[in-house]
Design a protein around this nucleic acid. Structure first.
Lengths: 343, 343
DNA sequence: TTGTATGCGTTATCAT
DNA sequence: ATGATAACGCATACAA
């Protein structure tokens, strides 16, 4: 059963041509006779031949490996990205190598370069918040490694980034809150040294202002995107008098923390307090009350990123598609937000 | 800046030896003079040389790539496994290539082999429920590809498997339920064609029986491990009269569904109904009431699997460690279960 | 203990 | 349009 894996030589021999010609059809060279091309393809099919990536890479100094660099602990997000990327790259002949890292580490750049070099990774997709690192992007460029960043802000050449329009999304949320009648709104932000955090904070604030409402400094609590930090922030916000009638959190984890604190303080949601999050992770639809939130088209972003990076790798410096880089998240309305109605 | 990456030849030249000798120290051969070894290592360090995986693999027909095959949609689980595996394999010079698949697909085996062949994957770690596939394991063995299965049942040579003792864990849960005073207990199982499901069902039932209680056929509902199926099962179980005072679900997703149904039926948890799940996924600690559940030491299982597979790859057929293959999950007590106390 | 020569499966440089 | 042949960077029989 263990027929050795067929090589390009086997194909060449059975087709009665030289391996160079087989190589030509493999790489889609134009200068191959129509009938020989067909013949060779038949032999390839018959032998179930596929070129060896190692040898191919050794000769062409490529690996057919894509890397995924990330730190963000939201597992659902990562899983969706992986599947989205694989959906594209498998059919284009690439594999995906994962590389969790630590955004805050001082060795981030060095560590990432080491990862890329030791396997000759052809290109990497970088997830937030690591994607916000200016240094890493610069190092990648210098290394000659193709990359695509996924982010919430437009901070690179459009060939190298896929961004979700978080500003528009939180703006929609702000309008929704106001439409429900809320005037005193609390905001739990992410770490303010993350661009994604400031972008959402500003977007939300600007939208409120446009509707004649103010997001005062008192109504803003800076979290760390973790559940625990969400508890702290919620406690602070809900201890105020008067307290906000609605709270928007930078992610679902922290929104879930708000729900928890509300329960402990005997505040009914959504009657006495509206809550909303960001991400639409698994928590959002399962928790009780279910969470009104914002959903990014993660899989779409991932496939787009994969397409971009493969295109960049294979176009080898020629012009690439730059228009298609922006996706729009949308509001998911569930149970945790509603009009204030304290009967 | 772009000094070309140094090769084994560069090292050999600067050290004034042949590449064969350099190769020897790279692979830890014993027969190398002490001073030459040291000299060579110094040169390697100085040049920041590391052997090229592609070339190395081409010559030795290995890839230094590990594969991760899975279908299970619990993202948290997958993420934990990835990090656990990487923790080991990166430092041993391997990379991890991910491969989501469809357990139910008729092409599972063929598809997996294709994955392995096209990148010459050295070994794969297979996650449940795919790990239960007898056919896949057989195909892997025949292909000569090393593998380690992660499972809930001991269904392979101990060199090829890491199992969590789910039976012991659910047994502990059953005892806990009984200790709380429950007599009428419901059970929402996973698909009964999964060994993990039957194992947990039997373990739970046996433990109840040992305590003089019966798990009647009426008290068992077969779910599909999904939230929606959990809703259906919970509805059925809770519509019975008298209804169970406690329900154990095969995973947290379905347990969360029970909580949802309880709310809709105005049943208070845990006062009127105790609920428990399995997995301790992110949901479990965030949902209100938080979920009593069972936690598997996933990261530990993953590192163990990684160690086993690398050992198998590098021992090339020699004896390998077989003792260490079993891990013990443990009970996590939270809010969703307690004594019945309908005041 | 060390070195020489060959092969791994491709791509790429030349011819023809 | 097609074909010899040399890289690519390393491991490994086989010598010495």
């Amino acid at each position: 059963m263990s027929d050795k894996k067929p090589t390009i030589n086997d194909v060449a021999r059975q087709a009665g041509v030289s391996k160079r010609t087989v190589s030509r059809v493999l790489n889609g060279s134009a200068s191959v006779g129509e009938r020989t091309r067909i013949l060779i393809q038949q032999v390839i099919e018959k032998l179930d031949y596929s070129p060896d990536k190692q040898a191919r890479g050794l000769a062409s100094s490529r690996s057919y490996l894509l890397g995924l660099i990330y730190d963000n602990p939201d597992a659902l997000y990562i899983d969706q990205v992986q599947r989205g990327v694989l959906d594209i790259c498998t059919r284009r002949g690439y594999e995906l190598v994962v590389h969790p890292c630590q955004y805050q580490s001082k060795n981030l750049v060095q560590e990432s370069l080491s990862f890329i070099r030791r396997s000759r990774i052809d290109g990497v997709i970088v997830l937030p918040p690591v994607s916000e690192s200016r240094e890493l992007a610069a190092a990648l460029r210098e290394e000659g490694c193709q990359y695509v960043r996924m982010a919430s802000v437009d901070l690179d050449d459009h060939a190298n980034i896929v961004v979700s329009d978080d500003r528009a999304a939180v703006s929609e949320m702000a309008r929704y809150f106001v439409s429900l009648g809320h005037q005193h709104i609390g905001f739990i932000s992410g770490p303010l040294n993350y661009r994604s955090s400031t972008e959402r904070l500003e977007g939300f604030r600007d939208s409120l202002r446009a509707q004649g409402l103010d997001l005062t400094q008192d109504s803003i609590a800076e979290g760390r995107n973790s559940y625990d930090s969400g508890l702290e922030c919620a406690n602070r916000l809900l201890s105020q008098n008067p307290r906000p009638t609605a709270i928007f959190a930078n992610n679902d984890e922290m929104a879930a923390a708000v729900l928890r604190v509300a329960v402990s303080m005997n505040i009914r949601v959504p009657e006495q307090l509206s809550v909303a999050g960001f991400d639409d992770n698994i928590l959002a639809s399962r928790i009780i009350p279910s969470l009104t939130t914002i959903q990014r088209p993660v899989a779409a972003m991932a496939t787009l990123a994969a397409q971009k990076i493969i295109q960049a790798i294979e176009s080898h410096g020629n012009q690439v598609q730059r228009d298609d880089f922006l996706v729009k998240p949308h509001l998911i309305i569930r149970e945790s937000a509603g009009p204030y109605s304290d009967n």
